[in-house]
């Protein structure tokens, strides 16, 4: 989900968004706050992407709109600045300690399949992520918005000439990417905890996924996350002590064979 958001933002808008991890963290904290007030996990799951969509749109309109022409260096500086600001805001408001989102009722235990135990919540996450991925894929392939986005990735100027309001498309895309990141933040809350610094720990992984999958392609993001997830799980068993290496080995191989990523478009 994270990767899909980042990938589309980069592919369409040509913006390198290092603050994507921050959106994920903010989503988790919005979830935490909503849960604290309402006690309802599902409400938090809806509130976080909505809130992040709004935040994303605001940031796009106020800041990004001004620097599309300035090149990647400016974008990296700006978005890196955002990561610092967000993490300090979070620390100031919520403190440095780790919070944990409670596992939603009905998903606390474990399920035993063929003598192997799976955490119910983890199965739910897998199911939920698959549904979101499928939904994204369908929207990307079949819907009008998906067509506009794909056209935008392929040729931005042409899209503008066709009379489509690029500004609105950009704002929408950015907000949507942020919302996806916010959603991901809540979903992992009961599993990985919520703490300042969770943004950094995920960002590198997401960037690897995007590079492996190919920029500007939802399918690529999904494929990339599956591959990296597998490498992450199998790596320690096969290569004990070289977990990190296994992920980057996959990335290196992909870059050697297909520099544009598995499903990326040729530059």
């Amino acid at each position: 989900m994270l990767a899909a958001g980042l990938s589309v933002i980069f592919g369409l808008m040509d913006v390198l968004n290092l603050a994507h991890g921050s959106f994920y963290m903010l989503g988790a904290y919005v979830g935490l706050t909503v849960l604290g007030v309402s006690g309802n996990f599902w409400l938090a799951l809806i509130a976080a992407p909505v809130a992040l969509g709004v935040i994303g749109a605001l940031i796009e309109v106020v800041f990004f709109r001004r620097i599309y022409r300035e090149g990647h260096l400016m974008q990296v500086l700006l978005t890196f600045g955002f990561t610092l600001v967000f993490v300090d805001l979070i620390r100031w408001r919520f403190g440095p300690q780790t919070h944990s989102l409670p596992t939603p009722p009905g998903l606390e235990g474990a399920v035993h399949i063929l003598g192997v135990s799976f955490a119910s919540y983890k199965l739910f996450v897998i199911l939920f992520a698959s549904v979101v991925a499928l939904g994204l894929l369908l929207a990307w392939r079949r819907s009008r918005v998906g067509a506009i986005l794909r056209a935008g990735v392929a040729d931005r100027e042409m899209l503008g000439l066709l009379g489509i309001d690029l500004k609105r498309v950009f704002t929408g895309t950015f907000a949507f990417g942020a919302a996806l990141a916010g959603l991901a933040g809540v979903v992992v809350g009961p599993y990985l905890g919520v703490y300042p610094g969770m943004d950094e720990s995920i960002l590198v992984l997401v960037l690897v996924v995007v590079v492996v999958g190919g920029l500007g392609s939802i399918e690529g993001a999904i494929l990339g996350s599956l591959l990296i997830g597998l490498a992450n799980a199998i790596g320690p068993l096969v290569l004990g002590g070289f977990e990190a290496a296994s992920i980057f080995a996959v990335m290196a191989i992909v870059l050697l064979v297909r520099p544009q990523g598995l499903l990326g478009r040729r530059q």
């Binding site: 780790t98 944990s100 596992t103 606390e108 235990g109 474990a110 135990s117 799976f118 955490a119 119910s120 919540y121 983890k122 009961p190 599993y191 990985l192 905890g193 703490y195 610094g197």
Partner: peptide, 16 residues
């Protein structure tokens, strides 16, 4: 310790 302990114990509890 720290977040490592948080993550391990949370996930261990989920699979009993």
């Amino acid at each position: 310790s720290g977040t490592d302990a948080n993550n391990f114990f949370t996930q261990a509890k989920q699979v009993d």
